[in-house]
Amino acid sequence: MSKAHVTTTINGDVVEYLCEPDQSMLEVLRDNLELTGTKEGCATGDCGACSVSLDGRLVCSCLVLGVEAEGKQIETIEGIADGSELHPIQQKFLENAALQCGICTPGFIVATKALLAKNPDPTEEEARYFLAGNLCRCTGYDKIIRAVLDAAAEMRGAAS
């Protein structure tokens, strides 16, 4: 069978692509669309490096087929900043030294955005539970959790 034609919206842009029906959304993003900010750490849904938002729902893009994106809204790490202005979550990750190697960072930031949309004032425990699907091997999570809580506080402040 030939490739499937998919029309979807990625980071606000209407995007059309052709993909094999068994290609994952992660492969489509990285290989077909050159959106390489979304990372592959395992391709089995166990590390969260490929986290994206699909119709507002946090998912591992390795566990979604490219064809399933038809008519949906996808947000990736490339869509988090407002132009050249960093999102408060990105800024707080930098200020808190919450990345060492940086490979897990895009997934963490996408996941954190989903967390704070759902729960603007998470406790440390809630943040750790929500982000348990994002593996980081460098930081021991301490500075990541601090950045998340710091970003939450900043975003609540900006919202009030």
Partner: peptide, 23 residues
């Protein structure tokens, strides 16, 4: 002191190119 790392912005926006990102 602990300033923000020079390569940080690219790493929080997905621009930084890692091993599998070279085509």
């Amino acid at each position: 002191t602990s300033p923000i790392r020079p390569d940080g912005a690219d790493k929080v926006t997905g621009k930084a190119a890692f091993g599998a990102d070279k085509n």
